[in-house]
Amino acid sequence: MLNYSRETILNTVLTLLLLGIPFAALAIDEPFYVTLATRVTIFALAGVGLNFALGLGGLISFGHAAFFGLGGYAVGILASHALNYEPLMSSPFEIEGTTQMVILWGVAMIVSGLAALIIGLFSLRTSGVYFIMITLAFAQMIYYFAISWPAYGGEDGLPIYVRNGFPGVNTLVPINFFMISFGVLMLAILLVAVLRNSRFGAALQAARQNEDRLSAVGIKPFYIRLAAFVISAMITGLAGALFADLNRFVSPSMLSWHTSGEIMVFVILGGVGRLFGPVAGAALFILFEFIFGGLTEHWMFFLGLVLLAVVLFARGGLIGTIAGKVRYD
């Protein structure tokens, strides 16, 4: 019970810290930290998505930037149509753009979910190192498409002139937007927690641990994995939608493979398969970027060294190091 409660305490502390810091920042009149905390929240959400496929399902996707970017572009494209008062398509029926966050989130999740369905149908036919390379390659395909397709900014990206709206909330106030993102993150973690303990979650973890036994009891691992991959992509796509609204800008760099690597880093730094791992990982990453980025423009060099040390010597990430091994209870 000790380990279990230690992880629970750590998760609670993390959540309270994440929630508390922006308000403390407002109290001491440093609004910049609110934006920083919002970035942590959104990156953590992207990590929660990947962690579902990677941690529970053992699917090492190196292409989650595709879903992050597609979510972002869904928001950017619809918002730009709404702001320019031109419909997205006029025949056979008219689709207007929108600036309502809730609708945009839905569209972002559907778009990234559909992309994951197609990518998953191909890439889940393989496993291991093939899967890593193929997810990377598909993400790269979408990246190059975004760069060479001029309609929505191409290489220059697409600005969102006004942050999209949420019913009853002024989203332009940073702390309000933080609270929206935080709420979404908590809901996503709750969803993952519920799924993890469901029959589906059990099958997914079984698919990671022993595929043959899962098949022997009459469950096809392929469909379980495909469903997990789609859910995972939808969560990451939602994070991309929020990220677009945070920056009021979407660019192909959201789709680049560096972004895939970073999302994976959030998951690993925090601890693979841990419910709150991505929160810890994203917080560590942003903290590192903030501290070392202020000291030297070559902070990525030191990030590389730290990451290397974590992989070689501190397996299990932050939560694994503090709370001990995963317990299968």
């Binding site: 190196f62 291991g128 190192v129 890593i132 990030l303 060294l305 992989v311 070689l312 397996r315």
Partner: peptide, 13 residues
Amino acid sequence: HLDQVLATFALIL
């Protein structure tokens, strides 16, 4: 493979 991907990603940085 996950550790290999991460460590070599760190090497790229």
